[in-house]
């Protein structure tokens, strides 16, 4: 009985100065192979200068069903945005 290669999530930095971004996933036996495969699958046309691989099982994700509790508390805190504060038009540079 063969064991399946685990799934890895691939993050690629397209150029220095930008963050690593999730590009997709792939199967590989270990981290080293995941890096090599990610190079071939996701950067065939110079799309990256750096790759991170993380085994998918190590990612903990929030559940969209709990989005209410999770994210709604931020919605009524409009005082966190600059537009909440009214200033006279003649004020500049603020």
């Amino acid at each position: 009985m063969e064991k399946n290669w685990p799934l890895w999530e691939i993050f690629v930095r397209s150029k220095n100065g930008l963050e690593h971004r999730h590009f997709g996933s792939l199967h590989a036996a270990d981290a080293e192979m995941a890096l090599e495969n990610a190079r071939d699958v996701y950067t065939r046309r110079s799309e990256g200068v750096s790759i991170w691989v993380v085994e998918s099982k190590n990612i903990t994700a929030s559940n969209p069903e709990n989005n209410g509790e999770m994210f709604e508390p931020a919605q009524d805190k409009i005082y966190r945005h600059p537009t909440f504060y009214t200033l006279p038009d003649e004020i500049k540079h603020m």
Binding site: E2, K3, W5, A29, D30, M33
Partner: peptide, 12 residues
């Protein structure tokens, strides 16, 4: 595929 998996486990 099996050999790659066995190698990965051994290394681990």
């Amino acid at each position: 595929r099996d050999a790659a998996m066995a190698h990965a486990e051994k290394q681990q």
